[in-house]
Simulated assay, not measured.
Amino acid sequence: MRLFKVLLAIALTMLVVGTSQAAKKETKVGFVYVSPIGDAGYSYAHDLGRQAVAKMPGVSTSYVESVPEGPDSERVISNMARKGYDVIFSTSFGYMDPTLKVAKRFPKTAFLHCSGFKKSANMGNYFGRMYQARYLSGMVAGYMTKSNTIGYVAAFPIPEVIRGINAFALGLQSVNPQAVVRVVWTKTWYDPATEKEAAKSLLDVGADVIAQHQDSPGPQEAAQEKGVYSIGYNSDMSVFAPKSHLTAPVWNWAPYYTSVVKEVQAGTWKADSAWLGLETGVIALAPYGDMVPQDVRDAVEVRKQEIASGKYKVFAGPIEDQSGKVRIASGKTASDESLLGMMWFVNGVVGTTE
């Protein structure tokens, strides 16, 4: 009888320990989004990555959408940290400083900020080399335009957006040196009405392809209503403008998000800066519209493989700015540092960086 009690006690102890260990294995992962998830766009693409994380064993996820940049984001991020989240992804540029502040108060939590450049012992940053896909979409625009005027509805004049416009223009000019890119700033990330009106202003000056750097399909809808082409962003929004949509530079965050969570679970994660290119699968082009000829698709695919392999560099000189000044000399390639701080337009872009 005594032996039975001893064995029972051991079994109960093992059960308690096992239950405790199982409970500890759950990793809580939080995501903070600047816009509504909806069924397309920037936050939608991030949430597809979250959904992939949610399918991982021993993981639970949560998110808060439509969080303004600034004090509100600091409050939301702080709330997640206080609730014991193990990993928090803050997914907009304006969340950088708030994330850094919260990270200092919660040193045991892993924080990752998307599109910024600051980091700390427990805060890393990450982004994709979306300029590579922008270049490819610029090639498509260059082949498809007839007016040689491309309209670009741009969000905020920050390096990320300016870099993308420049890459788009370089891709455009690589196949159509006569074409120009006209830029209109909306100072919005997600405002369908404002972004649609900006696109209309570009259509009024002769643009027959509309590109964009925002989260809404507004610019593409404006293009379709005018009977011209469009190039989207973030996710495949072709359903909103099927007769207009040529393609779009898009995000696929699942590979990165799942890899980070695995590292946190294994105790091997370290804060660093990740800038992910075409070769990682994090960035890509959306499927082409039926109107894009096969020879155009083939030409873009060749260049895509060259960029992914490192054979071709988007920002390789000589590259001039709008004034004709050589910014990247022949035989030189722009450093990541210079790309991350890019605040000038290449020759062939019409507009100001402010």
Score class of each variant (00 low, 15 high):
Ala299Ile: 01
Gln294Thr: 14
Ile307Lys: 09
Asp272Tyr: 01
Leu285Asn: 08
Leu278His: 04
Val300Arg: 10
Glu279Gly: 02
Trp275Asp: 08
Ala274Cys: 01
Ala286Phe: 07
Thr268Met: 06
Arg303Ile: 09
Asp295Cys: 03
Gly289Arg: 09
Asp272Gly: 10
Ala299Val: 05
Trp269Leu: 07
Leu276Ile: 00
Lys304Pro: 00
Thr280Asn: 00
Asp298Lys: 15
Ile283Pro: 14
Leu276Cys: 07
Pro287Val: 05
Glu279Asp: 13
Ala274Gly: 01
Val302Glu: 12
Pro293Glu: 00
Gly277Pro: 00
Val282Gly: 05
Gln294Leu: 11
Pro293Phe: 04
Ala271Gly: 02
Val282Thr: 15
Pro293Asp: 04
Val300Trp: 11
Ala286Leu: 02
Thr268Gly: 06
Gly289Ala: 10
Asp290Leu: 08
Ser273Asn: 03
Pro293Cys: 00
Glu301Asn: 12
Ser273Gln: 09
Leu278Val: 03
Gly281Phe: 08
Val292Thr: 10
Asp298Ser: 15
Thr268Arg: 07
Ala299Asn: 09
Ser273Tyr: 07
Ala284Asn: 15
Ile307Leu: 12
Arg303Phe: 01
Arg297Gly: 05
Val300Gly: 10
Asp295Ser: 14
Gly281Pro: 12
Asp290His: 13
Val296Asp: 13
Asp298Glu: 15
Met291Glu: 13
Thr280Arg: 01
Asp295Glu: 15
Ala271Tyr: 02
Thr268Gln: 00
Ile307Asn: 01
Arg297Phe: 11
Arg303Met: 13
Leu278Gly: 07
